[in-house]
Design a protein around this nucleic acid. Sequence first.
DNA 1: GTCTATACGCAGATAGAC
DNA 2: GTCTATCTGCGTATAGAC
Lengths: 222, 222
Amino acid sequence: MTVKSRRSREAPPPAADGDTEQRILEAAHRVFVRRGTAGARMQEIAAEAGVNHALLHYYFRSKAALARAVFQTVARRLLPPVMAALGSDAPIEEKVEQVIHLEIDHLSQHPFLPAYLIGELHHDPQRARELATAALQADPAQVRPRVMATLRRQIAEAVRAGTMRPITPEQFTVNLLSLCIFPFAARPMLTTMLGLDQKAYERFIAQRRAELPAFFLRALRP
Amino acid sequence: MTVKSRRSREAPPPAADGDTEQRILEAAHRVFVRRGTAGARMQEIAAEAGVNHALLHYYFRSKAALARAVFQTVARRLLPPVMAALGSDAPIEEKVEQVIHLEIDHLSQHPFLPAYLIGELHHDPQRARELATAALQADPAQVRPRVMATLRRQIAEAVRAGTMRPITPEQFTVNLLSLCIFPFAARPMLTTMLGLDQKAYERFIAQRRAELPAFFLRALRP
DNA sequence: GTCTATACGCAGATAGAC
DNA sequence: GTCTATCTGCGTATAGAC
């Protein structure tokens, strides 16, 4: 955290209705995700948090700092679990199902995070660096190589055993994440193109959760 | 087009260096795609077009109108070709390869469009309606059902022939588009997570273009 | 810590000369 | 058609009272 909360240096708050700083952060989360950093307004965040907008600057120095805090929170919640699941020592066939269910369940609860992340990363290259520190929070540049090495080894073993075609761990990972994340990131586009209403979209995702593991594993077969 | 250019009602332009309206539109395209509608500045567009920023309001009424024009252009360039390819009468195995190559080649030349589209659609629900009119420009609500019906029929035939597993045309389409588009939309995220520089990313995409058709077709096998 | 009031700059938009 | 000059409102940020 580059932006240190001032409250943490002071006496405990009047203990009204939940930590004010936390309320601001949660409201900021909702507004930034909804509008994007450029489209968000500090006033809207203040209103959503039920506090005066001057307080946003008291707890966080600026809009940019608040946006950074929100982005980091989102990145930290989204990436490490996937990296952990991808890098686990479970058999690769099981891992595929685990990752798919983990991702789809997680994104079903936070359906707007992928589009928010993609938009932020696209419009502000600086965010990529912040993403790296969030994703690799354990030890900065060792998580990723370890995960890739594990996948590479598991794939090589399966290939030797004749149960899988050769594929690089990078293509493997991107294929898996594409199939899980894109339907959420591009939801408005897909529902328009396919003519799905909300209920139909939810059924579509449920069906996907059930079918995707077998679909993906078939694609890996020799 | 809701916003009619004023130039079209007047005498031909002084014929300087390419139609001014066109120069503005192209500059706007670059800036809106780069910054997003909310983050874009009319001044930056004017500078990029090499014209006075008052001219933007002369040719297009407002920033919102200009943003709409750009979005429509992008949507029209991106969606109809895919829908056409998906709905063609080519055998479905060939069609898979055609769509993949069409998409990856197209997106290689316009790598930032998916992230732009996803961001716009996410932050402004109104865009979904404009997308519909762009995607289904031929005859408003008949393209999509025809495409889906064609796919459904072809899949059913292949299933009867024993060369394919059952899959809904919706899941089929989303799987295909996910694998093609997501690597471009989430490029900054993926390059960070996988540790790819620009050259490595380009090799990654080239490899993908070659391997994806077989990968996808294997997933469809019984 | 939280409020009110206000400063300040910026961006969208228009008026009007050329 | 294209420019300069200007208006206006909004959004971030701060000052200062409580």
